[in-house]
Protein backbone atom coordinates (compact mmCIF):
# COMPACT_ATOMS: atom_id res chain seq x y z
CA UNK A 1 0.00 0.00 0.00
CA UNK A 2 2.86 2.32 0.94
CA UNK A 3 4.69 1.47 -2.28
CA UNK A 4 1.53 2.10 -4.31
CA UNK A 5 1.29 5.56 -2.69
CA UNK A 6 4.91 6.27 -3.63
CA UNK A 7 4.25 5.16 -7.23
CA UNK A 8 1.21 7.46 -7.41
CA UNK A 9 3.26 10.40 -6.08
CA UNK A 10 5.99 9.79 -8.70
CA UNK A 11 3.45 9.49 -11.51
CA UNK A 12 1.55 12.57 -10.31
CA UNK A 13 4.72 14.71 -10.33
CA UNK A 14 5.63 13.23 -13.71
CA UNK A 15 2.18 14.14 -15.08
CA UNK A 16 2.42 17.63 -13.55
CA UNK A 17 5.74 18.33 -15.29
CA UNK A 18 4.29 16.96 -18.54
CA UNK A 19 1.16 19.13 -18.16
CA UNK A 20 3.16 22.30 -17.54
CA UNK A 21 5.39 21.52 -20.57
CA UNK A 22 2.32 20.87 -22.74
CA UNK A 23 0.73 24.19 -21.75
CA UNK A 24 3.97 26.14 -22.28
CA UNK A 25 4.66 24.57 -25.71
CA UNK A 26 1.04 24.89 -26.85
CA UNK A 27 0.89 28.56 -25.85
CA UNK A 28 4.21 29.22 -27.56
CA UNK A 29 2.85 27.75 -30.77
CA UNK A 30 -0.71 28.98 -30.49
CA UNK A 31 -0.38 30.59 -33.90
CA UNK A 32 -1.63 27.90 -36.27
CA UNK A 33 1.37 28.13 -38.62
CA UNK A 34 3.37 25.44 -36.81
CA UNK A 35 0.52 23.02 -36.26
CA UNK A 36 -0.25 20.63 -39.06
CA UNK A 37 -2.91 17.95 -38.80
CA UNK A 38 -1.55 14.39 -38.94
CA UNK A 39 -2.42 12.55 -42.13
CA UNK A 40 -5.37 10.27 -41.61
CA UNK A 41 -7.07 12.67 -39.25
CA UNK A 42 -9.68 13.52 -41.87
CA UNK A 43 -8.29 16.86 -43.01
CA UNK A 44 -6.27 15.59 -45.96
CA UNK A 45 -9.27 16.03 -48.25
CA UNK A 46 -8.13 19.63 -48.75
CA UNK A 47 -4.88 18.69 -50.44
CA UNK A 48 -5.52 18.17 -54.10
CA UNK A 49 -2.09 16.85 -55.09
CA UNK A 50 -1.19 13.26 -54.12
CA UNK A 51 1.69 13.20 -51.64
CA UNK A 52 1.19 16.79 -50.56
CA UNK A 53 0.98 17.49 -46.87
CA UNK A 54 -2.26 19.01 -45.62
CA UNK A 55 -1.78 22.64 -44.72
CA UNK A 56 0.89 23.16 -47.38
CA UNK A 57 0.55 24.51 -50.90
CA UNK A 58 -0.06 21.94 -53.65
CA UNK A 59 2.88 19.64 -54.28
CA UNK A 60 4.75 20.64 -51.15
CA UNK A 61 5.29 18.13 -48.42
CA UNK A 62 6.19 18.20 -44.76
CA UNK A 63 9.97 18.13 -44.31
CA UNK A 64 11.68 18.22 -40.96
CA UNK A 65 15.01 19.98 -40.85
CA UNK A 66 17.90 17.51 -40.60
CA UNK A 67 16.92 13.89 -40.18
CA UNK A 68 13.77 12.68 -41.87
CA UNK A 69 11.62 10.67 -39.48
CA UNK A 70 10.71 8.22 -42.27
CA UNK A 71 14.27 6.90 -42.38
CA UNK A 72 13.74 5.36 -38.95
CA UNK A 73 11.28 2.80 -40.27
CA UNK A 74 13.76 0.74 -42.27
CA UNK A 75 16.36 0.22 -39.58
CA UNK A 76 20.10 0.28 -40.13
CA UNK A 77 20.91 -2.94 -38.32
CA UNK A 78 23.35 -3.77 -35.53
CA UNK A 79 26.25 -1.68 -36.85
CA UNK A 80 24.36 1.57 -36.39
CA UNK A 81 23.28 0.60 -32.89
CA UNK A 82 26.82 -0.36 -31.91
CA UNK A 83 28.29 2.87 -33.28
CA UNK A 84 25.58 4.98 -31.62
CA UNK A 85 25.91 3.14 -28.30
CA UNK A 86 29.72 3.54 -28.33
CA UNK A 87 29.33 7.26 -29.12
CA UNK A 88 26.85 7.75 -26.24
CA UNK A 89 28.97 5.69 -23.80
CA UNK A 90 31.99 7.79 -24.86
CA UNK A 91 30.08 11.02 -24.09
CA UNK A 92 29.06 9.69 -20.66
CA UNK A 93 32.63 8.44 -20.08
CA UNK A 94 34.15 11.84 -20.92
CA UNK A 95 31.74 13.61 -18.52
CA UNK A 96 32.55 11.06 -15.78
CA UNK A 97 36.31 11.44 -16.37
CA UNK A 98 36.12 15.25 -16.32
CA UNK A 99 34.40 15.17 -12.92
CA UNK A 100 35.83 12.09 -11.21
CA UNK A 101 39.53 12.38 -12.11
CA UNK A 102 40.14 15.92 -10.80
CA UNK A 103 38.09 15.08 -7.71
CA UNK A 104 40.15 11.99 -6.86
CA UNK A 105 43.38 13.87 -7.67
CA UNK A 106 42.41 16.65 -5.24
CA UNK A 107 41.48 14.09 -2.58
CA UNK A 108 44.88 12.39 -2.99
CA UNK A 109 46.67 15.73 -2.71
CA UNK A 110 44.70 16.58 0.42
CA UNK A 111 45.58 13.22 1.98
CA UNK A 112 49.26 13.66 1.12
CA UNK A 113 49.26 17.15 2.64
CA UNK A 114 47.56 15.84 5.80
CA UNK A 115 50.08 12.99 6.06
CA UNK A 116 52.95 15.46 5.68
CA UNK A 117 51.55 17.65 8.46
CA UNK A 118 50.89 14.61 10.68
Amino acid sequence: MKTLGHILIILAVFALVMGITYVVVSRGNSSASGIIPRSGSGNEQFSSTPGATPGFANGQSLQFPGRDRNEFHGGRGGGGLLFGAIKNIAIIGIIVAVIVLPKSWMQKRKRTAQAAVG
Binding site: R67, R69, E71, F72, H73, G74, G75, R76, G77, G78, G79, G80, L81, G84, A85, N88, I89
Partner: peptide, 15 residues
Amino acid sequence: FLIAMEPRSRGLAVH
Protein backbone atom coordinates in the same frame (compact mmCIF):
# COMPACT_ATOMS: atom_id res chain seq x y z
CA PHE B 1 18.53 3.99 -22.81
CA LEU B 2 21.47 3.27 -25.13
CA ILE B 3 19.23 1.19 -27.43
CA ALA B 4 16.40 3.75 -27.28
CA MET B 5 18.82 6.57 -28.10
CA GLU B 6 19.41 5.03 -31.54
CA PRO B 7 15.99 4.92 -33.23
CA ARG B 8 17.55 4.59 -36.69
CA SER B 9 19.26 1.31 -35.90
CA ARG B 10 16.32 -0.68 -34.52
CA GLY B 11 13.37 1.15 -36.04
CA LEU B 12 10.93 3.65 -34.64
CA ALA B 13 8.52 1.13 -33.08
CA VAL B 14 11.27 -0.46 -30.95
CA HIS B 15 12.49 3.01 -29.95
